[in-house]
Design a protein around this nucleic acid. Structure first.
Length: 821
DNA sequence: GCCAACCGGGG
DNA sequence: GTGTACGGTTGGC
């Protein structure tokens, strides 16, 4: 290996910070292109200028054995240090026990090594071997990762996010499928002031549009190309159209190969294997903000849609006068009002830029630590995708062998006990406090020094240690920097990146047999300690007279005596926290006026300023009829303030509104997604009728597309009625041929009108919806009452029952101290 | 009510 | 060069 820096040359104050940030100080790397031949192209941004350099590296792989190279004989040479290797094939022995990855095999050209190993392995195993990834004897990473781990370099050293030159482009096309539609417009902007569109009004102009787009990108020379669903749409479309029109697609930097490299990766989402396409170009990083949104929502779980427009609104990025055009009407609109579409497309790219600023700070900061491309860090899993490469780099830097994969013995099949979850009480509680243990699992790892047994150098625990301290200092620095400043953003991004790494350390311990340093026993020890701590907190709260409601893994809800102030609550939490071991911190997370405890992790909270928060699926309805949702909101609010009279009133009013037909079809309609094609439904219809299709057929719609969302309701005569809404896609639009485009335009014109006549109809099936109200919505409050009280409150027949008592006397099932009366 | 299958996004 | 991490909805039985 030929490092251009040494570990001593880069330090940020701690001898082992190189485990965190790499050991090579080279600043400003914005892109790396590594080839199997050992050529690496590196672009750096230094003082605003881009500097290109061509470098050499030796492709490498780690192995537990030399057996598969015995057939090459003297072609394999030994070197005492990897940096000394010069021959076509060589190996260096690392420090480590038998069975560990103690052979670092290096080569001049990756294919030489790969061919030799595949041939050797095939001979050893007596069957053909097609991929080294299938063999446990080898630990292999991608070429760019090889380069970064070998050199100790990382991306973006010394840069802040605003230093990156980012360009967004967004295609507008006449159809979704590039075989059936073409590009008629592209909007382009960058974070250096560019904002423009390129038109191709006639099909003959499309070739010029693509060429102009490439030329503009070359001229602006950005480090990053960004868009929403860039991989899934824009690049696929561009690739197809450029090939069809035989126009070169030069998106990369001129010093590198002018190609758009495509990977069709098998990806498992859950257990299911699917394929997705990604791309890369030399010299520029590609950023798909859709991936960043997915990653964001993975932890936050708040987005109901990942569509650009929805996400932009969610983050408050959408301009108030933003133009909205339904996707299937964009081309029609362009033909009549091209300027409107240009503004629409420019708003799209502006929102992508906003999303980038909002979501990509953390991946940017991670790229300054982990030996991986920036692009990959946007969607990489934090444990295997980020932490493990850092661990591997640290071991290579130390000349130490990686441990063998942990053997999967029978103990691994035994159930792994996770966090504790307790439901202490159901019903309604008042004066509720939530407290939780800050970063519980990493804190436990740190406090009790629980790390993977195979981590002989103690890298993981060291990383958790340093990251925890550094994160606190960046949080602090972000707080003190001027709000909204570049400096604040920089520290916030680092803080977030560090949080991601810290939180993944525990997950990594339990990451199954494919993680090099996984350690099930250590993971179990962490959760065992966690349960111990949670039980301790619960006990301490009980001893202090608090009423426990529920506790889950690292947090607990409990009720305090009426009349307590927030200060008293905080003091209590601090008091309990003081009984915990050093390094384990109990935090006061919030206070609530009331809580409806339903099941573990399923509850509703009422804040002191009247906001209703509903958590867990059990309290929500998947049907989501508007009238039912409205009822449930009001009902939960009423029951949590103990207003049973009000609760019954809301119920009776809703029943009355249904029966008097003062609600509308839109209020009772439900929305489903179609799965069958018209042909499939026609086949199954005789055996089994399904409401949404019947609704369409009854409305005269014989054509639809699976995936289409359909709103419908049940009418008084028992039939189902379709209720088209503003954003519904008309039939067959994916095909995008001329007729269908026309129908799209017509539909669009029709649907721009605020609310259609159909929405205001009131011919719904009253008793059906009364039953829905009672069973689906009111039923969710069953656990808040004694059975006879529930029946009395929600009785449909308003005559007095034999055992009724005055409604004023009915109380919900309060969760209260027994001694408080 | 339970289980398996499917989808997310882009014009 | 991945990924061993989904979650909500729907339809079929």
């Amino acid at each position: 290996m030929t490092p251009t820096g040494s570990p001593a040359a880069f330090s940020t104050g701690h001898p082992n910070d190189t485990w965190l940030f790499g050991w090579n100080p080279t600043p400003g790397i914005v892109s790396v292109w590594a080839e199997a031949s050992g050529r690496a192209l590196v672009w750096r941004r230094v003082e605003g200028q881009v500097i290109f350099s061509e470098e050499r590296f030796r492709p490498w792989i780690l192995s537990t054995t030399l057996a598969d190279l015995s057939h090459v004989g003297s072609a394999l040479s030994r070197s005492s240090h990897p940096a000394d290797a010069a021959s076509a094939l060589s190996f260096c022995e690392l420090n480590g026990p038998q069975g560990s990855y103690r052979y670092l095999l290096t080569t001049q050209h990756w294919r030489t090594l790969e061919r030799a190993l595949l041939a050797g392995a095939a001979r050893r195993l007596g069957q053909p071997v097609t991929s080294l990834y299938d063999l446990d004897e080898y630990y292999r990473v991608g070429l760019v990762e090889q380069y970064l781990m070998q050199t100790g370099r990382v991306y973006f050293r010394g840069l802040i996010y605003a230093d990156l030159h980012r360009l967004q482009f967004d295609l507008e096309t006449t159809a979704l499928d590039p075989r059936r539609g073409r590009i008629f417009l592209v909007a382009v902007r960058d974070n250096r002031g560019l904002a423009t569109t390129i038109d191709a009004a006639s099909p003959a102009d499309e070739r010029r549009l693509i060429a102009d787009l490439c030329a503009l990108i070359q001229e602006r020379d950005p480090d990053v190309l960004e868009n929403h669903n860039l991989y899934g749409f824009d690049l696929q479309f561009l690739e197809y159209r450029a090939a069809l029109l035989d126009v070169p697609l030069n998106l990369g930097r001129r010093e590198g190969p002018a190609l758009l490299e495509r990977y069709d990766e098998p990806v498992s989402w859950g257990w299911r294997r699917r394929s997705r396409t990604t791309y890369s170009v030399a010299g520029r990083e590609l950023v798909d903000t859709l991936e960043a949104v997915r990653r964001y929502d993975f932890s936050v779980r708040e987005l109901s849609s990942y569509r650009l427009k929805d996400v932009a609104r969610y983050f408050g990025l959408a301009a108030p006068d933003r133009v909205y055009i339904p996707g299937n009407a964009v081309y029609e609109t362009y033909q009549q009002e091209p300027e409107r579409v240009r503004r629409y497309a420019l708003a799209d790219v502006a929102e992508v830029d906003g999303l980038s600023q909002r979501l990509l700070g953390a991946p940017f900061a991670l790229a300054g630590m982990a030996p991986r491309r920036y692009t990959r860090l946007i969607s990489a899993g934090p444990a295997m995708g980020i932490l493990e490469p850092m661990l591997v780099r640290a071991y290579l830097q130390a000349g130490a062998a990686l441990p063998a994969y942990p053997s999967s013995g029978p103990e691994d099949l035994a159930g792994h006990a996770g966090g504790a979850a307790y439901l202490f009480a159901t019903g309604i509680a008042e004066h509720v406090v939530k407290a939780d243990i800050a970063s519980m699992y990493p804190s436990l790892m740190r406090t009790y020094q629980i790390g993977p047994a195979g981590d002989r150098l103690g890298v993981l625990l060291h990383l958790v240690d340093r990251l925890t301290d550094l994160r606190l200092s960046h949080k602090e620095a972000a707080r003190h920097a001027p709000h909204g400043s570049l400096e604040a953003g920089h520290h916030t991004a680092l803080q977030q990146a560090m949080k991601i790494l810290i939180n993944s350390a525990y997950g990594y311990l339990g990451a199954g047999r494919m993680a090099l340093f996984a350690d099930r026993a250590a993971a179990d020890e962490v959760t065992r300690r966690g349960r111990e701590i949670l039980e301790h907190v619960v006990r301490a709260l009980k001893e202090r007279g608090m009423v426990l409601i529920e506790a889950d893994t690292d947090g607990v809800y409990f009720a305090v005596p009426a009349g307590w102030s927030a200060e008293q609550e905080r003091a209590l939490v601090a008091d309990v926290g003081a009984t915990l071991p050093r390094g384990i911190n109990l935090e006061y997370e919030g206070r609530y006026r009331a809580m409806f405890s339903y099941e573990v992790k399923n509850y509703a909270l009422l804040t002191y300023d009247g906001q209703l928060i509903v958590r867990g699926v059990a309290l929500r309805s998947s049907r989501s009829e508007r009238f039912g949702e409205r009822f449930l909101q009001q009902a939960l609010h009423a029951v949590m303030i103990g207003d049973i009279v009000g609760l019954q009133r809301v119920f009776r009013e809703t029943v009355e509104a249904l029966r008097s037909r003062s609600l509308t079809a839109a209020d009772v309609a439900t929305r489903v997604r179609l799965t069958k094609t018209p042909e499939e439904y026609k086949r199954s219809r005789a055996a089994h009728r399904e409401a949404p299709y019947e609704a369409l057929l009854a409305a005269g719609r014989e054509d639809w597309r699976p995936g289409e969302r359909v709103r419908y309701y049940r009418a008084a005569d028992g039939s189902y009625r379709w209720l088209p809404d503003e954003t519904d896609e008309p039939a067959g639009l994916a095909e995008g041929d001329a007729q269908e485009q026309d129908s799209a335009a017509e539909t669009f014109q029709r649907e721009r009108m605020p609310s259609t006549h159909a929405e205001l109809r009131n011919d719904y099936d009253v008793e059906q919806y009364v039953q829905v109200l009672l069973t689906t919505y009111a039923g969710r409050l069953r656990k808040a009452f004694a059975p006879e009280d529930f029946d009395q409150i929600f009785r449909l027949d308003p005559q007095i029952g034999l055992f009724d008592r005055p409604i004023e006397d009915i109380q919900p099932l309060w969760i209260r101290c027994s001694n408080a009366g």
